[in-house]
């Protein structure tokens, strides 16, 4: 917090006293002022971005979950799929985004696809590796109890993957916002991405930065939600930390 404050202060001082024009580098105070003045427009444009982010992320999450289970039950699938998926991660978004828009139009579909493209693989990897982190002895014990593969998956492998899942979720949710904005940048009727593009073309860097501020705030809120969700879903983690080292000797 202090470092952010100092940075903003230095920026403010530089923009005010160096004589640089506000159309090149606006001071943070001006960005904030303009953001307030244009709050209606910013809100109108933030809503489609939030929609695309959440919808795209939901699609990608569902697909990653289904596929991760298939990979877990049928290992050869992993060798068949992962090379393709890894290549999908090397595609430069700058080149892909306009093409996807060209193919699928200015509607919601290309945005969902791009968000899914950037978030699907990290989530899939997180889940698959999470399943594999299951303690071997828990698996052996469950088999000795008479549990089949599906029971073992539900009772042991799925919960074992939770920490990995949430680590993946925290990373992917930030990618998701960037993916949505990129898709809008390449072509959209409304959204933070297209708002930024228009503001830039109108020589209004203050409004570009205001939109950046909104997207940053959006990312932070989503990130915070994943942290909150993790606390609710994994109460044993905090319970363990609170009492660690307090146990009696036997």
């Amino acid at each position: 917090m202090i470092s952010v404050g100092l940075l903003l202060l230095a920026w403010e001082l530089y923009a005010t006293y160096s004589g640089i024009r506000p159309t090149t580098l606006p001071a943070p105070s001006r960005v904030f002022e303009q953001a307030l003045l244009n709050r209606q427009a910013l809100a109108d444009n933030a809503i489609p971005t939030i929609g695309a982010t959440l919808l795209g992320f939901a699609c990608s999450l569902s697909a990653a979950f289904v596929l991760s289970m298939m990979v877990d039950f049928f290992q050869p699938l992993r060798r068949a799929l992962f090379p393709v998926l890894i290549v999908s991660q090397t595609l430069p978004l700058v080149a892909i985004a306009p093409l996807v828009v060209l193919w699928f139009g200015f509607g919601l579909a290309p945005k969902i696809m791009l968000v899914a493209l950037v978030t699907f693989f990290p989530m899939l990897v997180a889940l698959v590796e999470g399943y594999e982190s299951t303690e071997a002895e828990i698996g052996q014990m469950l088999r000795a109890m008479g549990a089949g593969r599906w029971r073992i998956f539900v009772l042991a492998r799925l919960p074992s993957a939770l920490p990995y899942f949430f680590a993946g979720l925290r990373i992917s949710i930030t990618y998701a916002v960037v993916g949505a904005i990129f898709a809008e940048y390449a072509g959209a009727a409304k959204g933070l991405g297209i708002y930024m593009l228009n503001a830039k073309n109108n020589f209004r860097p203050d409004l570009v930065l205001a939109a950046v501020g909104v997207s940053a705030a959006l990312t932070l809120v989503l990130f915070g939600l994943t942290v909150l969700l993790q606390r609710l879903a994994m109460p044993w983690e905090r319970a363990g930390k609170e009492t660690a080292g307090k146990g009696a000797w036997r």
Binding site: E135, E137, M141, A144, M145, G146, L155
Partner: peptide, 26 residues
């Protein structure tokens, strides 16, 4: 009834629910 080397308790289950695991599987 098999007891492995490390306790193999499931960290996400409370002690009561760890203890019932074998019965639930049955």
């Amino acid at each position: 009834a098999f007891m492995p080397q490390r306790d193999a308790l499931m960290p996400w289950r409370r002690i009561l629910d760890n203890a019932t695991l074998g019965l639930e599987v049955q």
